[in-house]
Amino acid sequence: MAGKAASVPSTYSPSPTQKKKPTIFKDVDWVRPDGRGFHQCRPAFLRTSAVNAASGSAYVEFGNTKVIVSVFGPRESKKAMLYSDVGRLNCNVSYTTFATPIRGQGSDHKEFSSMLHKALEGAIILETFPKTTVDVFALVLECGGSDLPVVISCASLALADAGIMMYDLVTAVSVSCLGKNLVIDPISEEESFQDGSLMITCLPSRNEVTQLTLTGEWSTPKIHEAMELCLDACSKLGEIMRSCLKEAVSISKE
């Protein structure tokens, strides 16, 4: 009945620890656990207007990576912000405690909020909402690999749902380098074994890149190859997002 002592016992998860990374992939080809080809993305499930309380929202599933994004605004800026004749964008990405296999590891990705901001600010026409702020909040429900690209794509879908003016939809895809293989849209197991990664955020119809993030050691021809792969996948993803938005509009008209 009365509250017990407030001491929090330390706990550990009983799942088996990560498998050791196998020998460097010099000669052996990587086999994708879910049976995809190296240049094949996961099937995507997209839905807009997932959250009723927000001006615009979207829910996206890429395999096991599930993300929900809400957009609020344009709404009044905080009193502390000075007058500005362009709008402001405010982004925040957070993880649920059950998103990662071990509870509570989502706080390792604090830089995703600023990366999301940089990816989106090039595409939004800020002059259309002076003095106000658009808030983009993302919640990763389950992370199955390639989180940030999925968050960016979902955020641009939510912005379109909210009616914020943009130059184009923003799509993002990442490529992992495992030995000599380039695999697109990696899952979390592949990401943990990768030697390097490349993420591109682009505006597919205008063929412009808003953000490029490269980690690891890459040779120039490899970078070109990876970029080709990404841009191709981005334009396909752009088509899928567009058809999802058109469907949502036609459903709401009925």
Partner: peptide, 8 residues
């Protein structure tokens, strides 16, 4: 938890 997505 009430994450920022749920309410303005």
């Amino acid at each position: 938890h009430m994450p920022p997505i749920c309410s303005p």
